[in-house]
Amino acid sequence: MSIELVCPAGTPSALRAAVDAGAHSVYCGFRDETNARNFPGLNFSPEELTEGVRYAHARGAKVLVAINTFAKAGAFDPWKKALENAEKSGADAVILADLAVLDHAARNHPALRLHLSVQAAAATPEAIEFYQQTFGVKRIVLPRVLSVEEIATLNAAVSVETEAFVFGGLCPMTEGRCSLSSYVTGRSPNLSGVCSPPEHVAYEEGPGGTATKLAGYTIDRVAKGAPAGYPTLCKGSFVAEGKTSHLFEDPVSLNASTLIAALARAGVTALKIEGRQRGKGYVAEVVRTFRAAVEAIEAGRDEVEVERMLAGLVEGGRQTSGAYKKTWR
């Protein structure tokens, strides 16, 4: 059984870059509130998606369309249209989170393959069974709260495919269950497809250094000239009981590259790389490296050697294997 590498594409050119770099599948979304990466200038028009699907299929790659936000009350049309357009484009699957969207897709688009988004936070065999039996969901994107051992147990208990994040941004909070961003800015992943949205971001120079602010709240402060992080709320520095710390999560990103073989043994069908907001240069490099690593593992090569192949990616930024190792908790 071979591992499927699922790679991000924020734009048509990133899609082409990911496919050319060896992605087995590419995931992307429409340029509206129907997908959880509703950032300025990102995503696809229906025509661009059709073109992207053609490009990917011609090279043996699949396209998965994320329609993974929660539909706004009284305004279901964009989600309906997104499902229609995804089916029309010839995409291989849609990635959904909202009960209303799942229900509509199952009733009106029986030929469309449904994947359950991480935003649905289905972390137990019972929840997975519910989505599988009710909507015919074929694959679950696993919440990033499970350890590798728990994933193995879970896979033994369910008959759907599972997909696990291996690289890129990391939410310490259960995805699809977090309103921190809207508490501060009025916009959140579930309400608007964005987290800590850029229009609320500001950097302020002060005597204590550069403050990174989100909607007026100081999320972090660094010495003048030091790299200032994007003020994602949960990666900020806060004070509790007199202690200043990155209470929720350090400013790290997920790198489970050393666990590829373990995840494969745990029965995971697909490995997902996060980063639809990232540039195509970055995407191409990460995809190329992971593809080589996956092939090396499948060829039974030494895991140490695979680790060395991926070492280049970890340079610079700080990384964690997240919840996959139980000590993270």
Binding site: F70, A71, A100, A123, E126
Partner: peptide
């Protein structure tokens, strides 16, 4: 959490604020 759904069977139940009901489609479902 929807983990509870299979065990509820046909019995009536209440839904707490942790379940994502953002629209009338999800509510009527």
């Amino acid at each position: 959490d929807l983990t509870a759904m299979p065990a509820m069977g046909a019995a009536p139940f209440a839904v707490g604020p942790f379940v994502n009901v953002y629209n009338e489609g999800a509510a009527s479902f």
